[in-house]
Design a protein around this nucleic acid. Sequence first.
DNA 1: CTGAAAGCGCTAACAC
DNA 2: GTGTTAGCGCTTTCAG
Lengths: 357, 357
Amino acid sequence: MASSPRTNRRSAKPPTAGTDKVTIRDVALRAGVSTATVSRALNRPDKVRAATRERILKVVEETHFVYDGIAVSMISRRSRTIGLIIPTIMNSIYAASTQSIQRAAQAGGYTVLLGVSEFSPKQEAVLAQRLLERRVDGLILTGGNHDPSLIKKIRANGVPFLITWKLMRDQDWPSVSFDNYKAARAAVDFLVSLGHRRLGLVCGRTDVNDRALDRRRAFEDCLQRHGLSTNPALIHERDFEMEEGASAMAAMLDTPEPPTAVFCANDIQAIGALSLCRERGLEVPGDISIVGFDDLPATSYTRPKLTTVRVPAHDMGRRAAEIMIASIERRTPVQSVELQTELIVRETTAPPGRRVF
Amino acid sequence: MASSPRTNRRSAKPPTAGTDKVTIRDVALRAGVSTATVSRALNRPDKVRAATRERILKVVEETHFVYDGIAVSMISRRSRTIGLIIPTIMNSIYAASTQSIQRAAQAGGYTVLLGVSEFSPKQEAVLAQRLLERRVDGLILTGGNHDPSLIKKIRANGVPFLITWKLMRDQDWPSVSFDNYKAARAAVDFLVSLGHRRLGLVCGRTDVNDRALDRRRAFEDCLQRHGLSTNPALIHERDFEMEEGASAMAAMLDTPEPPTAVFCANDIQAIGALSLCRERGLEVPGDISIVGFDDLPATSYTRPKLTTVRVPAHDMGRRAAEIMIASIERRTPVQSVELQTELIVRETTAPPGRRVF
DNA sequence: CTGAAAGCGCTAACAC
DNA sequence: GTGTTAGCGCTTTCAG
């Protein structure tokens, strides 16, 4: 019947080692008031007499009291936390959207719980489960490749979610994104309009990355629409490494009929591909044209400067977070938004030239 | 005396819209057992009769029950969460350590709460407060520039913390990092040993970034040690943008006595600086040598390839997380570790040449 | 093997 | 203005 060992321990060492967590009870005790009054002093200062309030705040200062958001979450059923799952941070385009999400979340009083799926839906499901267990108020996902049961579970738990980096037209999943297909089509159409007839493609792994799939489809459809043949030797799915872009380009150049233009569906691979061309002594764009995708800052610092597709990574991140927060706070369905991309023509594209092998 | 409106609402709609959170009570009800049994079935399956257990697990499946980690945290006083504050994700070197921290945390069963301070100790303090409120089990910080009261508060709350990206020799703060001073000294010594006498420096803002400060000090001490003069016109503190590196380099080249070698204390600025040189028609390293810092993947794809200092970003992140988790679980003090760096000599460095202006 | 009850730290009625 | 009390969802004794 005596007090529990825990309570015992605490009261046994009054202001002992500064290491034991200070609770609102400790503050109340030291200030000679009840816990309710401490709570009020912190949350509704006007409901507490000034003298009392100041006494309490002084104790809070002294004891370095940090109020327990976990306990508060328990009551409010809101964690003021947003879960974010991205495939990788190493591709700085995801870092860009992540930074903007984090900034907007913070501005709205939310903290971001980060998960990195490494392009594995299975790993993503584990991560998401963990985020749901931590009772995130909302969940921001990347793309549309998800474990089948995951979305069901999210829905069953009444947690608002949205998809970034991929427009979910068909599915009834809300998304804040640009259209990968349209954006890629613009890039490929541009190359064709320049007069190129032998086009190559380097993109991410379409089996685990539906953004890469959209872009690849756009490429293939474009060729077909223009009556151009699709040469499988000129299509390469690779990881997001400059090295991979370089080796894909090398493989294409070593082909009997090398391309006069290559669309790299992300800038990382494009930079590698461009570098490989120059290493081989090829003139870009004289001998071969290259278009990237993402408009990373680095693309203005390659030689020549890379033609690419600008994606609204920051805007997308910010809006995703804002829309998510609005949905959480107004208990309103998540709004979908389509953002626009822009082809940025720099120096790696020109009509097919006097290529000699 | 009647049940609260909340309880009321729940029991009023038994298996209604799948949107209301499923609790352990709901599961217990549907399985015809007590909440205690459900809890046991989930946590100590062997303590429950097989038939009962299976019935419960089936209900868990059906209802998409996700157990409430918040409630569990409340009891266990552990959130299985690690707070991480970095200055920015946009510099991919921080993305690298962050990715490794997140991976190791996940492997250990922890989730990462991410904060981005944007180089502001004040903003960091706000973020850290929020992370402490969310009861992170540990806190990983970047560098040693912190709001004075922050560390006190962390300590008072008994939360283990450690510093990355900066070795904290003097302070009694645990750190997992390499030595910025030593690493920078190696780079500058190398340039001097090549025969350079007029050296320039581009680095981050030392007022908000003590890693940049260490590197700048190493630069200045080196020059002094070798009896070389320090020309203030050849020292530039800038933001982490390629553009800033370029403009700093431009400013130095426009000086009456331009440097024959420039140490850029991070690769982002180095890439910008290198690009500017080539744009001006300068030969690198014939006319001017450049050394970077970080060894970003992109540095192997500049032309010429950048000489730089390799930092163990991934290893640092992984070990920081592992050490943090060990400290949390064994309730043991946080171990400090010093990691090593390595000068990677590529193609942007050579003895001072036949420079003509 | 299972259930009842207490309690983690806090807030929200409701008293005084 | 301030204190008392119940309870958020769960685990954990302690009984049975």
